[in-house]
Amino acid sequence: MPGAALAVGLVGATATIALALAAVGSAAVAGQRVASAADAAALAAADAASGAVSGAPCERAAEVAATAGTRVQACDLDVLVATVTVALQLGPLTATAAARAGPPP
């Protein structure tokens, strides 16, 4: 039965590698999702700061972030430039991303 033990070992190693690759892929998707939410929230805040849309800039950023399933951790305004940091809880881990939007310099 040495062949059976080898087969079980190979199946176990293959399953472990597949699970590790799935976790890495999931983390990559979550990172892109958080970055995208930060970009959209910063754009919404900058639009509100410039008067292009109504509302308070950081409230607009929070609304857009919530739509993407994230939450705003920080929202700073420097005249018309908005810097927004959003977070996404992934089990015991938290993924964060920051984005800045406003008129060109």
Rank of each mutant, 00 (worst) to 15 (best):
M1A: 15
M1N: 08
M1V: 11
P2I: 15
G3N: 11
A5N: 01
A7G: 13
A7V: 15
A7R: 02
V8K: 05
V8A: 15
G9F: 07
G9K: 09
V11P: 10
G12P: 12
T14V: 14
T14M: 14
T14Q: 03
A15P: 14
A15K: 09
A15W: 03
T16A: 15
T16W: 05
L19I: 12
L19A: 15
A20H: 07
A20V: 15
L21Y: 02
A23H: 06
V24S: 11
G25R: 03
S26P: 01
A27I: 00
V29G: 01
V29S: 02
A30Q: 04
A30S: 12
A30W: 03
A30R: 14
A30V: 13
A30D: 13
A30Y: 05
G31C: 06
G31Y: 05
Q32D: 08
Q32Y: 02
R33M: 01
V34M: 06
A35S: 13
S36E: 08
A38F: 05
A38P: 03
A38R: 04
D39A: 11
D39V: 06
A40V: 04
A42Y: 05
L43V: 12
A44F: 08
A44M: 12
A45Y: 04
A45P: 04
A45V: 00
A46Q: 00
A46R: 00
A46S: 13
A46L: 07
A46H: 00
A46G: 10
D47W: 04
D47F: 06
A48S: 08
A49R: 04
S50I: 09
S50L: 13
S50C: 10
G51N: 09
G51V: 11
A52K: 12
V53N: 07
V53I: 15
A56I: 14
P57Y: 10
C58I: 12
C58H: 09
E59I: 12
R60H: 08
A62W: 02
A62F: 03
E63G: 01
V64G: 03
V64H: 00
V64L: 15
A66I: 02
T67Y: 11
A68Y: 11
A68W: 03
A68K: 02
G69E: 06
T70M: 00
R71H: 04
R71K: 09
V72S: 05
Q73K: 11
Q73T: 10
D76T: 14
D76L: 04
L77K: 04
L80R: 15
L80I: 10
V81E: 10
T83A: 10
T83H: 06
T83P: 03
T83L: 02
V84C: 11
V84E: 06
T85W: 03
V86H: 06
V86R: 02
V86T: 14
V86P: 09
A87P: 09
L90V: 12
L90Y: 07
G91M: 14
G91D: 10
P92S: 15
P92E: 15
P92H: 14
L93D: 11
T94S: 08
A95G: 07
A95T: 00
T96K: 13
T96W: 05
T96S: 14
A97F: 08
A97C: 02
A99H: 11
R100Q: 11
A101D: 04
P103M: 06
P103F: 03
P103T: 08
P104H: 12
P104F: 11
P105Q: 07
